[in-house]
Amino acid sequence: MVELGKYAGTVLAAYGVTVLLVLGLVALTLTKGARVKRALEAQEKRMSKNG
Rank of each mutant, 00 (worst) to 15 (best):
G51T: 06
Y15K: 12
L23N: 07
S48G: 08
Q43M: 03
S48L: 09
R46P: 01
L28C: 06
V2W: 11
L20P: 05
L40E: 10
V36Q: 13
R46N: 01
T10M: 10
V19E: 10
E3A: 02
R38C: 03
M47T: 07
E44M: 05
A13L: 06
E3N: 13
E44K: 07
V22E: 12
V36R: 09
G9Q: 13
V22C: 13
L4N: 03
S48W: 11
R46Y: 03
E41Y: 13
E44R: 10
E44I: 05
G24A: 01
G5I: 07
K45Q: 13
T31A: 15
M47R: 08
A13I: 02
K32Q: 05
L25T: 09
A39D: 13
K32S: 07
G9Y: 07
A42N: 05
A42W: 14
L23R: 02
R35Q: 11
A8L: 12
K32H: 04
L28Y: 06
V2K: 13
G9S: 10
Q43P: 00
T29E: 15
E44P: 04
R35L: 10
A42E: 15
K49R: 01
A27S: 11
V19T: 05
V2L: 12
L30R: 00
L40F: 06
A8R: 15
Y7Q: 11
G9L: 11
T31G: 14
G16A: 00
G5T: 04
A8C: 14
K45A: 14
T10P: 03
L4F: 04
V36E: 15
K49Y: 06
V11C: 05
A14S: 14
R38L: 04
T10G: 02
L12R: 03
A27N: 09
A13Y: 02
T31P: 01
L25V: 07
T31S: 13
G16T: 03
G24M: 01
K37F: 01
L25N: 11
Y15L: 06
K6L: 10
T18A: 10
L30W: 02
N50M: 10
M1E: 11
K49G: 11
V26Y: 02
V26T: 00
V26H: 01
T18C: 01
A13M: 04
K45M: 13
K37G: 08
R46D: 06
V22P: 03
R35Y: 00
S48H: 12
K45E: 14
V11D: 11
V11R: 14
K6E: 09
T31Y: 15
M47E: 08
G51F: 04
G24H: 00
A42Y: 08
L30M: 03
A8Y: 15
A14M: 01
R38W: 06
L12C: 01
L30E: 03
R35S: 07
L23Y: 04
A13N: 03
K49P: 04
V2D: 05
L4Q: 04
L4D: 04
G51A: 09
K32D: 06
L30K: 02
Y15H: 09
E44Q: 09
V26E: 02
G5L: 09
V22I: 15
G33H: 04
A14R: 09
G51I: 04
N50T: 08
